[in-house]
Design a protein around this nucleic acid. Structure first.
Lengths: 228, 228
DNA sequence: TCAACCATTATTGTTTACAATATCAAGGCC
DNA sequence: GGCCTTGATATTGTAAACAATAATGGTTGA
């Protein structure tokens, strides 16, 4: 049976989720045998997953030393941020298609979940949902290719934020998402694009590339519960 | 010695080059053992390369059946084209930095090679150099992340063109590249962006998504000489 | 003659054991 | 006492054998 690729996707998704939720700190060692036990898999599959993740710049493979959660350099961080800004801002300014009623509904549903997470002070859920909002927006106004590209950039941004975030900052303003949707429904794409630019710049302004980030290497034991 | 990753990169590059040069037709079977012999490698390495290429959408892995050169659907083709257009057109309109003298020199060198290839009627070299021109432009005005993203899109476009190109069309107008550089040197980014849009639309207008493309499965023997 | 079935062959997928390398700790040397 | 060397241990990397699956071709029967 061809469940092999499925299982590897499951493992990769779990690792990506852990990165998104800031549970896996950049620099963390990812030992093959330990991962195989956690996910009740074997080294061969883990190895393939790590190889794939390395191509997404989520994991860095050091020959002979093993796999580590990537530590994007300040330059790489700036490039990732700028690239994401280019894609999202430009797409809003010149969307491939209008926002459909169905698309608006999808966005509204995510926003309601965001509100719930906000009320519950669930920071992890808010991070995840914010990403989902952006990805859904891109899929609705653009296409799946742009969505997949941006999905990778968002993943890398998660590492970047973990490494370079200033203390005491609340990064993602979910209120922006609400305003964004209003502007799109009013077909004011120019203003929506400008808001998106400010939105992303707001995130970037919370970063400080000066201080070399701490080498917080979280024990892989932390990600024990995500084996489902 | 850590030459393993190097060797795999060499094999992957060779395959990508074959795709760029339209030597490997979409749909071609890529048998592991045969590739291992061609590149004087072993199945394990070939397997890793194919896995990686599958992530770049260059190769499609069918469980139990093996690896094939991808055959992008019309929808995927449209999405890839639109994504590339978004990135390149937007970047020219709002470049991250001005074109440096060094950057202009790099572009001019590529253009001179293009002229040589044109004079020699070397269609393959022209395709490759056209891609290099675009990638260099993106690196000079943008950054390496955008360059790598666009590099993958260009690779996919190569498959798309092979599949859907109309008869009797000369796709890439190298004269556009010359005009583009002139506009950039004159700091007329708005016009440069518009020209880029027309340039890419010109390529797209040579495509016909109606006719189902032939299943031209070239023998892997064809790529024998690229084992260096 | 054509189609369906079965055996054969070839190719892919997985597991295992082994080899190479890096890490770590202890001991000796300066 | 600090630093380098050296051996033990753990982890990664590789190869090869094996199992599973799909393609092939030939045979049989209608």
């Amino acid at each position: 049976m061809g469940s092999s690729a499925k299982e590897e996707a499951r493992i990769a998704d779990a690792l990506c989720k852990a990165v998104l939720e800031r549970k896996l700190a950049p620099g963390s060692k990812l030992p093959e045998e330990e991962l195989a036990q956690i996910f009740r898999s074997n080294r061969a599959k883990i190895r393939r997953v790590l190889l794939l993740l390395s191509r997404s710049h989520i994991v860095t493979l050091e020959p002979g030393r093993g796999a580590f959660v990537s530590r994007p350099s300040p330059q790489e961080a700036r490039d990732v941020l700028a690239s994401r800004r280019l894609i999202e801002v430009s797409l809003l300014a010149h969307p491939y298609r209008k926002l459909s009623a169905q698309g608006a509904a999808r966005l509204r549903q995510i926003m309601s979940h965001e509100a719930q997470a906000h009320a519950a002070h669930d920071a992890i859920a808010m991070i995840y949902l914010s990403g989902q909002f952006h990805l859904t927006l891109i899929e609705e106004l653009g296409n799946k290719v742009l969505k997949s590209i941006t999905g990778e950039l968002i993943l890398r941004m998660s590492l970047i934020i973990t490494m370079y975030e200033r203390q005491n900052t609340t990064c993602c303003l979910s209120s922006d998402h609400h305003d964004l949707l209003e502007l799109l429904l009013a077909h004011d794409y120019a203003e929506a694009s400008a808001l998106m630019a400010r939105h992303l710049e707001g995130i970037e302004s919370c970063l400080d590339f000066q201080r070399e980030p701490a080498t917080t290497t979280i024990l892989s034991q932390i990600l024990q519960p995500l084996k489902d």
